[in-house]
């Protein structure tokens, strides 16, 4: 229940502006891959092309191929709605639906596309997903309460539960801990370690210790200057990237000597 992603010659545009240029990357199934790099280097933009969320922004488009176990996501016959069901996403700021209860938030994706689910199946799915997100014990007595009443860290884990409830192949995380305190961050990092047993996880982070702690492989993105497109500079095993990077820019960035 997890697939690999291969990206070939991908260019990402906002209208005429080339935001990310010529990315080639192979992301293994059942692993955690971290994207690091300075602000504005296009790592979040690139992440959003992996489940076709990039094109939600008016004027945004891509050139090139993203292959999910060999199937091109950008094939004209592919519906982005199907893609997003296969490749889930967790955002920078926790975004549970404020008008739904905790339980309904978990089930939100499952009930899409007119799918029906019996009450007992729903109950066990809610429990399983919340267990999977390490949130069950904290919320099991108040599943009917609004999701917006939880703390920031709990809300983010609720969003992860919502993402895994639809059993995706891949989970993308766009700086999932940047709005959280250290304790909640630790909880999410533990969770990412558990998730990779079943899912392919891709995480964008500004926190290099976090990348070092959670990921198997790391990709370093950089930008030559304002208005220039972002590029993938170096990609390899996390230990290599942090200890013996091949490129000078990577070494400068991971050792904090950047700029």
């Amino acid at each position: 229940m997890s697939k690999r992603i291969d990206v070939k010659d991908l260019n990402v545009y906002y209208s005429k502006f080339l935001a990310v240029e010529d990315v080639n990357i192979n992301i293994e199934a059942r692993s955690v891959t971290a994207f690091i790099g300075p602000s504005g280097c296009g790592k979040s933009t690139f992440l959003r092309t992996l489940n076709r969320m990039h094109e939600v922004i008016p004027g945004a488009r891509v050139e090139g191929e993203v292959l999910l176990d060999g199937d091109n996501l950008y094939d004209t016959a592919v519906d982005p709605v199907t893609v997003r069901g296969e490749i889930g996403m967790v955002f920078q700021r926790p975004n549970p639906f404020p008008t739904m209860s905790i339980r309904d938030n978990v089930l939100a994706g499952v009930k899409l596309n007119n799918k029906r689910i019996s009450k007992s199946d729903a109950d066990s799915l809610v429990e399983k997903s919340l267990q999977g997100a390490n949130l069950w014990n904290e919320v099991k007595d108040r599943l009917g309460r609004p999701g917006s009443g939880l703390s920031g860290g709990q809300q983010q884990r609720l969003c992860i539960a919502r993402a895994i409830a639809v059993s995706p192949q891949v989970i993308l995380m766009d700086e999932p801990c940047s709005a959280l305190d250290p304790i909640s961050t630790l909880a999410i990092e533990d969770l990412i370690n558990e998730l990779k047993a079943e899912y392919t996880v891709v995480i964008v982070t500004h926190n290099m210790q976090q990348a070092a702690r959670v990921s198997d492989k790391t990709a370093f993105f950089n930008i030559a200057g304002t208005g220039k497109p972002g590029r993938l500079i170096e990609y390899g095993d996390t230990t290599t990237i942090f200890n013996k990077p091949a490129v000078k820019a990577t070494e400068d960035y991971v050792s904090g000597r950047f700029g």
Binding site: G85, G88, R93, N95, L112
Partner: peptide, 14 residues
Amino acid sequence: PTLHEEAALAMGAT
């Protein structure tokens, strides 16, 4: 909020 619209879209909502 765009946040909530994107949350729905990212789950595969039409």
